[in-house]
Amino acid sequence: MSNRRTAEQPPDTVPLHLYGLRRGTVTVLTLVSTAFALFILAPVAWLAINATKTQANVYGTNGFWFARPFHLFQNLSALGRDVSGAGVYLHWLGNTLLYAGCAAIGATLLSAMAGYGFARFGFRGANALFYLVMSTLLVPITSVALPLFLVYAKVGLVNSVWGMILPSMVSPVGVYLMRTYIDSSVPRDLIDAARMDGAGEIRIFVRIVLPLTVPGLVTVVLLTVVAVWNNYFLPLIVFNRSSLYPLTVGLSSLSHAAETGSKAELVPVLIAGGLVTVLPLILLFLFLEKYFRGGALQGSTTG
């Protein structure tokens, strides 16, 4: 009788124990998730609050509460000027958007093509080549810094935007995600039927594979944008002109100027720059979250 009542309950009222979770376990997981969320959001809240302060108030007031005078707009307007002598923040922001956008497009396209090749073309040495691509994740960037710089100097990529974009278009993680996503989302029978109808490989890839793998493509886009947005070491090697700096290197130079004390009121400008730096990534994730969640889960649960 009790089983019959349970089966008649609507999905939103199914007891938690049917999912294998006790109420105490749910409470603990909720508390852990809340603590983790606070840990992640606390720095963002600190940036948002202290971006509204003067330099004296940054050091002299509670970091997690506002103070008068409200200085947010003055700090934001300073981002459009060379207040430190190291460069203009808005130029660094534009550079980062360029690098991240071009790298995301290139990495997504290359990962999709490579993933499709590994997933649907059986050629000699496919697994060995795939594992070789994955093994590059084990190589630390510091170990190839000097050879990379020497190669860049030989081919003229030092102080070139392509020196930042081209390496960022190579994404072993993207190749892995697209291979696993295509394995589970693109039926072989559908591809075979398209070939029997006379469709070429390029047409199959563009008209069938890409539309069926949109969540996976969005996942690669997000991962690439975040990786390029946060990349510090590569632009530090490639660029020695501040006009080409991305946000990571530009904010580092601004932080150095603030630490030396050679310029006044640089700390709140640096904080405002940090706030503006994280906002595009947050907005991008919120906008593409439903695709990213599906693509990440699909890529992590299939093999």
Rank of each mutant, 00 (worst) to 15 (best):
V226N: 13
R23P: 03
T96P: 05
S77T: 12
L72S: 01
L97C: 13
W162K: 03
R120E: 07
S111F: 05
H256L: 15
L251I: 08
P280W: 02
S255E: 14
Y89D: 02
A37V: 10
G273V: 06
G94R: 13
T136A: 01
V269G: 09
R124Q: 12
S255D: 12
L148Y: 12
S160A: 07
L138S: 13
N230R: 08
L266C: 07
R81Q: 15
S77G: 08
V28G: 09
T260D: 07
A103R: 01
N57E: 04
L146P: 04
E201T: 12
G156Q: 03
F292P: 02
Y116V: 01
T6S: 14
S111D: 09
P187E: 00
I271R: 05
N240S: 11
V170K: 02
A104R: 04
S2V: 13
F70Y: 12
I40M: 12
A126D: 06
L31Y: 10
T34D: 00
Y99N: 08
A112K: 00
V161E: 14
L148W: 10
I208G: 04
G163C: 09
S242F: 09
M134T: 02
L247W: 08
A45L: 15
F64W: 06
P43E: 05
I191C: 03
V278G: 01
A45T: 13
F39V: 06
E259M: 15
P235R: 04
V44M: 09
N230F: 05
G299P: 06
G303K: 15
G101Y: 02
V175C: 12
L177M: 12
T142K: 10
V225K: 01
Y131M: 14
V88W: 04
N95Y: 00
G101T: 13
F292T: 03
L244R: 06
Y291N: 08
L244K: 01
R4N: 13
S171G: 06
R23G: 04
R195A: 10
A78P: 00
F233C: 02
S243M: 11
N159R: 09
T6H: 13
Y245E: 10
V226G: 00
A193P: 10
L137S: 08
M196E: 13
V170D: 03
F239Y: 15
P211Q: 07
L270Q: 09
S2Y: 15
N57F: 01
P43W: 09
L38H: 03
V221T: 10
